[in-house]
Design a protein around this nucleic acid. Sequence first.
DNA 1: CTGCATCCGCTTAGATACTG
DNA 2: CAGTATCTAAGCGGATGCAG
Lengths: 105, 105
Amino acid sequence: MLDRLGDRWTVLVLVELSKGTRRFRELERAIPGISQRMLSLTAKRLCRDGVVERTVYPTTPPQTDYRLTPMGESLAGMVSALADWSRENKDAIGAARSRWDREHQ
Amino acid sequence: MLDRLGDRWTVLVLVELSKGTRRFRELERAIPGISQRMLSLTAKRLCRDGVVERTVYPTTPPQTDYRLTPMGESLAGMVSALADWSRENKDAIGAARSRWDREHQ
DNA sequence: CTGCATCCGCTTAGATACTG
DNA sequence: CAGTATCTAAGCGGATGCAG
């Protein structure tokens, strides 16, 4: 299950959806660098896992809303905590890497 | 920073080290399926990031102890929480996948 | 707008063999 | 025991084109 979190985009999608319901294009714009393909794949997998729910409105142009399920909310909470941790320890990790790289030439 | 957590083995190594100091072989045995190569690479990266510390005893045969740094402890705490979550929601996710697969044939 | 299909290059993991 | 070196195969992600 944790494998999914390593998909590079999954965490970013979860964090964005934790802020509220988003459409496909909104997610794409909110996540710099993600391609349509990866957003589509990531969203599909999250839907399959039952942490994200998709609602399609058959309008023209079509519209699709993505939002977290209750299970997704709880997961996003933990992921956000991890994201906070990484921000807080960003400098310490950078320093550790610099030291390591210097000592190992 | 979160990228590292997606390395598939990183989480397992962190969880194992959260139980206490471990030697190379102990980690290898405790993590089914990991190869020497991946354990070596994973451990090295964690050392570089400053979350794991390595102590080498120049005995024969050689011995190396791995243990979490204080920063590593805090990270391992969050990772363990995620691991617990995945265990608790394992069934729900499995059910969601089965339902999804059935509906999407 | 919201995707899926295809092709392709690159990274990565795994297997294996070898060193100190 | 504690790694490193090399090779190979698979998977992932990006770009592009097309469809509803």
